[in-house]
Amino acid sequence: MIDRIAAFGRSGLDVVSSIGRAGRFLAGALAGVPRPSVGFPLLLRQLYFVGVLSLAIVVVSGLFIGMVLGLQGYTILSDYGSEAAIGQMIALTLVRELGPVVTALLFAGRAGSALTAEIGLMKATEQLSSMEMMGVDPLRRVIAPRLWAGFIAMPILAMIFSVVGVWGGMLVGVDWLGVFEGAFWGNMQNSVDFIDDVLNGIIKSVVFGFVCAWIAVYQGYDCVPTSAGISSATTKTVVYSSLAVLGLDFVLTAVMFGDF
């Protein structure tokens, strides 16, 4: 019995020390900004891998989610005779919530797990060690560009998601279900406020991007350098990122949109 309590306490301490390691890791990665001539090409490559290659899944998901919102929204709103409000429903849902959150979840699944696996593999094949032995700080060269790329790419992906979603909703609402186009856009523009809704959504996606990139990169760096360790780290990235995003979403939504 005592052993179990001790083990429980030990795992709690492990979690705390892990968070502490993650914090020091983050400080090292953020402080180590490489020379622009060296760092910029690295950042560019990472933006390509992390951002551009995630476009496909973001665009397709955004389109389908927008279309489903259009369909479901129409069904519900027609009960109240307010089909014309469908534009604002789709736009507000996407811009405030689904854009940042779903994009972050997709990002964690696609780009986050890829980052973790790549860095974990570099650790397992001793590439990070050999970099250190050559006098190059792997935090600066390998980790920092990936962190910043996630940071920058996420808001862009979230905005593209929202735009594609709105367009998908328009396809369903206006072209298919026959809502008046003027009412669709007019109601939307009247109820979506740039600062309160769009900008807050962007702030959310920046925060999510930061958290997802940090978790992904840290899990790869800290993993047990075996194939079992890498696959466990990849799973952890997706799970922790998703939970963190959903939890932070609640906190941010309460702060931003709650006037209570």
């Binding site: 811009v95 929202s162 735009v163 740039f194």
Partner: peptide, 11 residues
């Protein structure tokens, strides 16, 4: 996308 959201979506 940002411009679209600014002008077309939020008016």
């Amino acid at each position: 996308a940002l411009l679209f959201l600014a002008l077309q979506v939020s008016g």
